[in-house]
Amino acid sequence: MVSVSYKKPESITATASVSDTISRQSGVPETSVNEVVATSIAANVADAANLPIAANVSNLSVSLAAKNEITPSSTTTSVSKQQLVQPGSDRRELVTYTVRPGDTIDSVATNYGVSKDTIKWANNLTSDSLSEGKELIIPPVDGVVYTVKEGDTVEKLAEKYKASRDRIVAFNDLEIDGLKKDVKIVIPAGQLPETERPGYVAPTLSYYSTQSIAGTLFRGSSAGNGYAYGYCTFYAKNMRPDLPNTLGNANTWYARAAAMGIPVGSTPRAGAIFQTSVGGGGYGHAGYIESVDYETGTVTYSDMNGLAGWNRIGRSTTTIAEASARWNFIY
C-alpha cells in the first residue's frame, strides 16, 4: 500500500498589472508552475498504485495545466497592444485674418507656414503691401483656393493646376460626394497659371489686326512644296516639310491631317502648325508655332499672307489661353 499525502492547491496571485487585468477579466485564477508539477506527480503515483482517488487527482492535474496555459506568466513585463492612430492636427479649413499694424505678406506667410504667393493668389493681391484692417483668407497649405464650377472634374483641376488628383480628393473629403458647384476647395501644392494670377494683363493679340507689320519678304525655295506660292499653306509646308501636299486649303488642314493619322490637338506646342477655318476669305489660315513659354504664358508664332501680307513672314505673340481658344494644332 502506497501512502500519498494530498493537499488541495491554493491559488497564488502574482504582482503583474497586465496579467492581473487579464485574470480578472477571464475569471481564471493564476497557477504556479510548482503546483502543476506536484499535481502531475501525484496523479502519476495515484494511477500507478491504482488508488481510488486516481481519477480525481488526474482531473485536477489536467485542470491546473490548462489554467496555467491560458493565464499569462507573472514574469511578463509587457504586452504588445495595437495603438490607435491619432488624427493629424493639421488644419484643413480656410482662416480669415485681419491685418495688424506692422504686418507684411512675408510675416503673415511665415506665421501660418505657407508661401506668400499662396496668400496673394487667395486674396487677389497684386503687390506685397498690406493695409491695416484688411481681411485675408489664409489657406491651410500651399496651393490654390478654387471655387468649383459647373463641369469641373478632379482630373481636370489636377491637370490644370499641376497637382495630385488623389491629394485633392483626400484633402477635401471628396471620396463620397465629389465636387459641388460654388463650393471652395483647396488644391494642395497647386500652381496658379500665369494667365490667372493677380494683375495679369493679356498681350494684345495682333493676329489679323490692321496694324502694319513689315515682316520679311520670302525668297526661299519652293522645291517639294505643292501649295500656292506666297500663301499661308505654302509657308506652313516650308516650315514642316514632313507634312503631305494633299491637305488642301487651310480650312481643311486639321480635319485631313487627323484623317491621315497625323497627330493633332488643342494645345500649342513648339514646332506645331496652327490652323483655323476662320478668316482668309473663307479659306482659313495656317501658320507655325515657334515657341511656347510656360513661365510667361505666351506663344510666339509666325505666318505668311496674314500678319505681314502676301509672301511676307510676320511674327507675333499671344497667350497660351488665346491660342488654345482660337486655333487647332497639327503636331
Rank of each mutant, 00 (worst) to 15 (best):
L60A: 14
S222Q: 15
G178A: 07
D173K: 05
A325D: 14
T126C: 06
K160Q: 08
R256P: 04
K162S: 09
G133T: 12
E175S: 07
G309T: 10
S19P: 10
T195E: 05
T13C: 13
E132P: 03
T77H: 09
S26V: 15
T318V: 06
T319G: 07
V186L: 04
V141S: 04
Y294D: 08
N56T: 14
S302V: 03
N34G: 14
L125G: 05
V145T: 10
Y200T: 04
V154F: 05
I289D: 01
R165V: 02
N328H: 15
V145W: 01
Y288R: 01
A202F: 07
Y254W: 15
C232F: 05
E30L: 12
G282K: 11
G220C: 10
D177M: 06
A258Q: 12
I53E: 08
I289S: 00
N68C: 05
K81D: 06
D293Q: 06
T21V: 13
A42V: 15
T252R: 07
S80C: 08
T96D: 13
G88H: 07
G282S: 13
A214W: 08
E69R: 09
L217N: 13
T71C: 10
S129M: 10
R219W: 10
A65M: 11
F171A: 00
A46H: 09
S221K: 14
N249I: 10
R219I: 15
A321R: 12
S222H: 13
N123E: 05
S78Y: 13
G279F: 09
S266L: 11
S324T: 11
A65D: 08
F274V: 02
R100C: 00
R91T: 13
D177K: 06
K180Q: 14
A14V: 14
A270P: 01
P87W: 06
A325L: 12
T300Q: 08
I12A: 11
G282M: 14
T204Q: 07
G199K: 07
V79R: 09
S212C: 04
Y301N: 01
P139L: 08
F274I: 04
P140W: 01
E295S: 10
N172K: 00
G226L: 15
K134L: 10
V292S: 03
T317P: 02
G284K: 03
G287E: 01
T252H: 11
V201Y: 05
A122M: 01
D173H: 06
V114W: 00
D152T: 10
F274E: 03
E295T: 14
A43T: 13
E69T: 12
Y331I: 15
Q86I: 14
S206D: 06
I119E: 01
T39V: 15
